[in-house]
Simulated assay, not measured.
Amino acid sequence: MPDIHWEAPFCGEGSACFRIGTDSAGNAYIAIAGAENVYLTDTREALRALILDVKAGKADHLL
């Protein structure tokens, strides 16, 4: 398992909380807060784009 540095959880109103993490190789991770051992990984840019779309209301049904 990679050494992942997790940021503080992001909790939307009425939705699950999630966390973003990064490793020393520049990969990004996203997991439901409290379940960081089960996560998605992709490039940092791809996960950033996903989060920006969610925050913009384009994909709020995914979380």
Rank of each mutant, 00 (worst) to 15 (best):
P9W: 01
K55M: 09
M1Y: 10
T41Q: 10
C17V: 02
G57C: 06
A56F: 12
A49L: 15
N27Y: 12
E7Q: 15
I32Y: 11
R44T: 13
G26C: 04
L52Y: 13
E45S: 05
A16W: 14
W6R: 08
D53W: 08
Y39F: 09
G34K: 01
F10E: 03
T22P: 03
R48V: 14
G21P: 01
N27R: 12
H5D: 13
D60P: 03
A28V: 10
A59M: 04
A8M: 06
D23V: 04
D53A: 07
A16Q: 06
Y29Q: 00
D53Y: 14
V38L: 15
D3G: 04
L50Y: 03
L47H: 05
C11E: 12
R48E: 14
K55G: 14
Y29H: 01
M1T: 11
E7T: 13
T41N: 15
F18W: 07
G57V: 03
G12I: 07
G12T: 05
N27C: 06
A46R: 06
L50R: 07
L47I: 05
L50C: 05
L62N: 08
D53P: 07
H61F: 14
G34R: 00
H61S: 13
I32D: 02
D60N: 08
A31Q: 01
A25G: 11
G14W: 00
R48W: 14
I4K: 01
A28H: 07
N27P: 11
G14F: 00
L40V: 12
E36N: 02
H61V: 08
I4E: 02
T43H: 09
E45M: 07
V38G: 10
D53N: 07
L50E: 06
Y39N: 09
A25T: 06
T43L: 05
D3M: 03
L63M: 02
P9R: 01
K55Y: 10
V38K: 08
G14N: 01
L47F: 04
E45D: 13
V38E: 06
H61N: 11
F10P: 06
T41C: 08
T22K: 03
